[in-house]
Design a protein around this nucleic acid. Structure first.
Lengths: 131, 131
DNA sequence: GTATTTGCAAAGTGTTTGCAGAATA
DNA sequence: TATTCTGCAAACACTTTGCAAATAC
């Protein structure tokens, strides 16, 4: 099995966003002999090829997830369990393009991340308040 | 001059987004004796107090900028010269809240960053193509 | 046999923490 | 004197790079 396949499989089995190191650990547990640098390299390639979406952890770490549709998505991410939901984001896409154009900016890329607590995790914390 | 004043002044003089280390270097150059950890600490406090906006560099580094208005802003950031423009973002703000609610997420925070090349930098690169 | 790919470990980057000394009340 | 704040340097987490062995053509 080539590294690319190993990484792809790990992403597919994981489903949600995971860090390179998490994915690497899983691969090792699954019996694959693969280096962390290869995982990073492959993930970078997949991101560049548009087959994987990448977001940034609140701590700054990069998290990866197999892209579901043909376009890049923005996600709603649960800070408690890590579950993520792709969003219908056509509006913001357009807003982003507009904002760039109206200020004379070229080659505008955007990063949009929503982080909260999903319904399930909220339910578990019913009696508690955070903050 | 207290560290808080030093940091605040450096932010004010810089105007645009700058990393903690850049700001620290400036302070040293300006003759202030201050530690990098104090800069980080103070910046964190200012962010928590809502007086400074923080974004993330494409490389993951944290950049800080004195907040201009009463609310947090989103910015259009030039990847070439580092210049930033605060955006009118009421629309996305609402989109973000909506997206969170419609999926049952609570305490949703958002990160929205637009990175491109500003008009001036584009002009300088007229004959060139990137990528 | 040459060019590419891989894995290990070391280096690099940005940020946070531990602790002793200085300033303050 | 007790408390808080500050700076240095070390620790820390994540990512990238250097290099030799393995693989492919």
């Amino acid at each position: 099995m080539t590294p690319k396949e190993i990484v792809h499989r790990a992403l597919a089995e994981n489903g949600d966003f995971a860090s390179a190191q998490m994915l690497h650990a899983r691969m090792l547990v699954a019996g694959s002999r693969i280096g962390l640098n290869t995982v990073y390299r492959t993930l970078r390639e997949l991101v560049e090829a548009g087959r994987v979406d990448m977001i940034r952890d609140p701590g700054g770490a990069q998290l990866y997830r197999l892209r579901t549709g043909p376009h890049h998505s923005h996600y709603l991410f649960c800070r408690t369990c890590g579950h993520s939901v792709p969003l219908e984001s056509e509006f913001v896409e357009r807003w982003a393009v507009n904002a760039g154009q109206s200020h004379g900016f070229a080659n505008v890329e955007h990063t949009i991340e929503l982080v909260g607590v999903c319904a399930e995790c909220s339910a578990e914390n019913n009696g508690r308040r955070e903050g």
